[in-house]
Write a protein that binds this DNA or RNA. Structure first.
Lengths: 266, 266
DNA sequence: ACAAAAGTGTTTTGTCTACACCCATGC
DNA sequence: GCATGGGTGTAGACAAAACACTTTTGT
C-alpha cells in the first residue's frame, strides 16, 4: 500500500479512478407504441451495433450535462439544462452500472438516465453515432438472446429494461405521463400514453374521470382541440406550479393487475 | 494523466477518470425509532465530523463489494456478498451523486447504497472511522442548517434523506419491512417497523389482517414468541422462495394520508 | 381478578369497475 | 340521420377504516 500524500487532504493513491459514461434511455410514444431511441455505433467496441445514446463524462461537467450533451451530439436534439420541470421533457437518473464485466476495454462505470419526451423527429445524427432512430421497445425486448443482432451493445438491453420498468411504475403515482405529451393535450392523448407504456387497454370513461378528478394533475385550458371525427375534446395542460417529478397523484392511477404467472399447462 | 493504451479499442483520452466512493445509508429500527448508522471521520476532509460509512472503490471490486467492505472496515459488521435475498439484510443501490461540488478534494463520484438491517450491536469501529453508532434519523434531519454540528459531512444529509424516503416508499409495496426484523418475528414487531419508518400510528387489528392476509408475505411458524404481558403472539417468517427486493405486495400497505398542507388557520 | 396484548367479527364508508346514457361534431 | 368519439351518471363489487368483542397470558 504505497501512500504518498503530500497534501494533507487528497484522494488516497489506493483509490482507483474510473472512466465514467452516461447512457440515456430516451422513451417516447409514437403511433400509439412506446419507443426507445437507439443509435448505431461508429466506433469500436460493438461497432455497427445498436446502442443507447451515451458517452464518456468529460472533466468539469455534471452527469446531467453529460447526458444532455451526448443526446445532442448523437441525435441533434437539445435537452434544456436542468430538464427536470423545464418544458415538456423529463430527465432523471436511473441507476449506475459497473464497473466490472460490462465493457471490453476495461472497468467502466455507467450512470444511466431516463428521458421521457414527446414524439419529435430526428433531423440528423452526429458524433460517434451513424444513425439515431426510434425503435418500438417491443422489438428490442425479449430477443436479447436472439441471434439476429437486434439486441443492444454492452449491457444496454438490461439498462433499457430497467428504464421501461421505471417509466411504467412512475406514471402510476406521478404526473409524468404528461412528459410524453405536447404542452397542451386531450385526455384521450394522455390515455394513449398510459396504454402505450403499460401495453394495456383502459376504459376511456373511467380514465377521464380519474385523470380530471385527481387534484394537482390536469388544468383545463378552455380551448378545444382535435379535428377528427366525433365531439372535439377539451385541451388540458399540467396543473401550474407542479413539479412533475416530485408531485404524487392521490389516488394513483394503477395499472390493471396482470393475470400473474399462471402456469399455461394442460 | 499518463495514458499508456496503444490498443485500437481503448477509452479515449478526452474521457475523464474519476475517483469513485460508495456511501451506505444503513437503517435499522431500535427502540421503536428509525435510526441510521454514522461514523466519526478520522481523516480530512471533515475530520471529526459525523458521516455516512463509506470510502473509495478499489480497482477490481464491484460497487456492492466496496459497500460491504467499507461497512465491515468501519463498523466491524459483515454483510454477506450479494446481500439481496441472502439472510435478513437487504442492500440496494440508491443513486449516484456528483462529481462536482461535493468534495473539497475535487470531483468525486459517489454511489450511494441503502442497507436495511435488523437491530444489532456495534462491537467496534475501525478503518478510517473513530466510532460507529446508531443515531435516530429525527435527530439528524431538519437541522441541516443548524449550527450545532449535527449535520453530516459532504452531501450526506441529502443522501440520508433520499435513503429514508426510499425506505418509506419501498415498504409500502414490497416485503422489505421484514429486513428490519430478525428471521422470525411477530406481527406486532413488524407493525412497529412500519410505525417507526413512517412515523405514524397504525391500527393493530387492521394491520394484523392486512399483513397476514397478503399472499406471499408472511408464513406462520406455529411457534409462539414474546414473554411480555398479554397473550403470546404467533411467530412468522418471510414466505419462502420470495425475493424481498423483487416481490410486490398486492394489495400494498399504504401509509395513512398525511393531512397535507392544510392551513391551520381559524 | 385485573391489565395488557393478540387475534376475529362486524359495520360503515369509500373507491373501482363496468356499462348505460347523453353531447357535439363530421359526413 | 348516423357514425364516432367526448363526457356524465349510476349500480354492484370490492377494499379499507373504525371499533366491539373474545382469547390468552403475566401479575
Amino acid at each position: 500500500m504505497a501512500r504518498t500524500t503530500p497534501a494533507p487532504s487528497a484522494v488516497p493513491d489506493s483509490a482507483g479512478a474510473f472512466p465514467v459514461t452516461v447512457d440515456v434511455v430516451a422513451l417516447t410514444v409514437r403511433d400509439g407504441v412506446l419507443q426507445a431511441l437507439v443509435v448505431d455505433r461508429l466506433l469500436e467496441p460493438y461497432r455497427g451495433r445498436a446502442a443507447l445514446p451515451g458517452g464518456f463524462v468529460l472533466p468539469g461537467e455534471t452527469l446531467e450535462q453529460a447526458a444532455g450533451r451526448e443526446l445532442e451530439e448523437e441525435t441533434r436534439l437539445t435537452v434544456p439544462a436542468g430538464a427536470t420541470g423545464t418544458g415538456p421533457w423529463h430527465l432523471e437518473q436511473l441507476r449506475t452500472y459497473g464497473p466490472l464485466g460490462r465493457d471490453p476495454r476495461g472497468p467502466v462505470l455507467s450512470v444511466a438516465y431516463l428521458l421521457l419526451a414527446p414524439a419529435f423527429g430526428l433531423p440528423a445524427a452526429g458524433g460517434d453515432a451513424a444513425e439515431a432512430r426510434w425503435v418500438p421497445v417491443g422489438e428490442l425486448r425479449g430477443r436479447s438472446g436472439g441471434a439476429r443482432g437486434a439486441s443492444l451493445a454492452f449491457d444496454h438491453d438490461g439498462i433499457l429494461a430497467d428504464g421501461v420498468e421505471r417509466a411504467r411504475a412512475k406514471i402510476e403515482y406521478s404526473p409524468l405521463a404528461a412528459a410524453f405529451c405536447p404542452p397542451e393535450f386531450t385526455v384521450a392523448e394522455l390515455r394513449g400514453v398510459y396504454e402505450a407504456v403499460w401495453g394495456t387497454q383502459l376504459d376511456a370513461r373511467n380514465f377521464h374521470r380519474k385523470a380530471t378528478g385527481t387534484p394537482g394533475f390536469l388544468e383545463p385550458t378552455g380551448r378545444l382541440g382535435g379535428g377528427g371525427p366525433g365531439r372535439p375534446a377539451e385541451l388540458f395542460r399540467l396543473a401550474p406550479g407542479v413539479d412533475p417529478s416530485a408531485a404524487v397523484l392521490h389516488p394513483p392511477l394503477l395499472r390493471p393487475v396482470s393475470p400473474g404467472p399462471a402456469a399455461p399447462s394442460a
